[in-house]
């Protein structure tokens, strides 16, 4: 078990965005969180990454309590995330963007006088190769295609060498081909690098195609949690969410 939450509660005014959610993620899993719009997926993500602090309940990462740690500390422990609205560095090159992650991970960011260009060249190039962006290394982040931006964001998060990677709608706005290639990439990462992935996704084809475990949120509560088959078979899930589609 790499991540565990215990009775997490988060309220925004009168809105109960996260209602008593306890769940866990196993190491090396590809774990999806699904639910209709407004089910509280983003809030739940934010509680895990430290963007929000819960009103009550606890979050554990590798057995250590992290409920109130700021985001950057969680990142240093090995949790990082991508955003639903792709979050990259528009005016930095692809190469520089990945370098930023490496500078931070290797804790050389307080070095004020050496030249940053000299650091970690091989490692940056190997990540660029991994995600297939090597030919665009010296292009600015805002000049590459939407699919490549998603890829770049993933590459930047990989630069921090996370153990647990949270992906918020990783295929949002992508063409079917781009979706397929990024899903293949994610699967590859889990198999090769032993990453654990927790992701939200609205495309049920993607979810059932790749997830090994699925949790379903509805109005802030977790109504189902299990293997894709178990979730598909759950009557409650059928009722509130999947409808006849699955």
């Amino acid at each position: 078990m790499i991540l565990e939450t215990k009775k997490l509660v988060k309220e925004f005014g009168k809105l109960l965005a996260t209602n008593n959610v306890s769940f866990s993620v196993n190491k090396g899993d590809i774990h999806a969180i699904i639910g209709p719009n407004g089910a509280g997926k983003s809030t739940f993500f934010n509680l895990i990454t430290g963007y929000h602090i819960p009103d009550s309940g606890k979050v554990f990462f590798k057995g250590k309590e992290i409920t109130k740690l700021p985001s950057y500390r969680r990142c240093r422990l090995g949790i990082t995330r991508s955003f639903q609205i792709t979050s990259i560095y528009p005016k930095l090159t692809v190469y520089e963007s990945i370098l930023m992650a490496l500078l931070s991970r290797h804790r050389v960011t307080l070095n004020l006088f050496s030249s940053a260009d000299k650091y970690f060249r091989e490692e940056v190039w190997s990540i660029l190769e991994d995600v297939g962006l090597a030919d665009q290394a010296h292009v600015n982040g805002d000049s590459i295609s939407h699919g490549d931006k998603k890829r770049l964001e993933l590459a930047v998060t990989l630069g921090t060498k996370p153990e647990l990677l949270l992906l918020d709608e990783p295929t949002c706005g992508m063409s079917p081909e781009e979706t397929e290639s990024i899903m293949a990439m994610i699967k590859n990462l889990v198999d090769k690098k032993g990453l654990t992935i927790l992701f939200t996704e609205h495309d049920m084809g993607v979810v059932f195609g790749i997830a090994r475990r699925i949790s379903v949120l509805h109005q802030g509560s977790m109504i189902a949690d299990g293997t894709p088959e178990e979730v598909r078979a759950s009557e409650e899930v059928q009722k509130v969410y999947l409808g006849g589609a699955a």
């Binding site: 990454t49 985001s71 950057y72 500390r73 990142c75 240093r76 990082t80 995330r81 955003f83 979050s87 990259i88 560095y89 528009p90 005016k91 930095l92 930023m100 992650a101 931070s104 991970r105 960011t109 964001e153 930047v156 998060t157 630069g159 921090t160």
Partner: peptide
């Protein structure tokens, strides 16, 4: 360029 992204790099 993006302080939120940078915080999630551990800064």
């Amino acid at each position: 360029e993006n302080s939120e992204r940078t915080e999630f790099l551990g800064v």
